[in-house]
């Protein structure tokens, strides 16, 4: 039994300190995830509280054979889908096929235009990425955030989103390409 399973077991017996440990461990990743999806810190903090409360209420459905992080982020992802549905944001498009472009672009050797990465300082690119995130479809944004902000493996993301691993890889790439294009278009 891993450390998190032990904490869950204690929390189920009413040990609030154990659940506090879980909160402290996951508050930052969860707030980062929601914050990068909504673009609003206050909303991220409110949603994170709601998600922890949901997790606490359904702790006994957690099975120690699974990773606690993916279990928690499944709850978080469902919470976000509900939010988008209420706001009628077509995020949800996660369940619909994107253009599964297997013909990923190959590089143009003759292209001498300096790339985004070389044009700006790192801090500057980060700020531009934060702005550009709002401009890509929420479904792709979520997969990008799970991969590059929360650093889940493709397999873990596939588990959270119930998608094939290949689809996840493809969509994360699409998200990055959209972001790159946004960065290039932004003066």
């Amino acid at each position: 039994m891993n450390d998190e399973s032990r904490l869950v077991k204690k929390a189920l017996k009413g040990d609030r300190k154990a659940f506090e440990m879980i909160i402290l461990r996951y508050q930052q990743p969860l707030v980062n995830y929601i914050g990068r999806l909504t673009g609003e810190r206050e909303t991220a903090l409110d949603f994170a509280q709601d998600i922890f409360l949901k997790a606490y209420a359904s702790l006994d459905s957690y099975r120690s054979s699974f990773k606690f992080s993916t279990w928690l982020f499944k709850i978080a992802s469902n919470h976000m889908i509900d939010h988008w549905r209420k706001k009628r944001i077509a995020a949800v498009s996660l369940d619909q096929p994107y253009c599964e472009d297997n013909d990923s672009p190959r590089i143009q050797v003759e292209d001498c235009e300096p790339s985004v990465a070389r044009k700006y300082e790192l801090a500057e690119i980060r700020a531009k990425i934060e702005n550009a995130l709002d401009k890509i479809p929420a479904g792709l944004r979520e997969l990008f955030v799970l991969r590059h902000v929360n650093e889940f493996s493709y397999e873990e993301i596939a588990d959270i989103k119930k998608l094939p691993v290949g689809t996840v890889k493809n969509r994360v790439f699409q998200a990055k390409e959209m972001l790159r294009r946004q960065l290039e278009e932004t003066p």
Binding site: Q27, R36, A117
Partner: peptide, 17 residues
């Protein structure tokens, strides 16, 4: 270039809790 871009993607600052 892709390495630099991926580094930027993966190093967005955390949101303060």
């Amino acid at each position: 270039d892709r390495r630099a871009l991926n580094l930027a993607f993966s190093s967005l600052p955390p949101i303060e809790v």
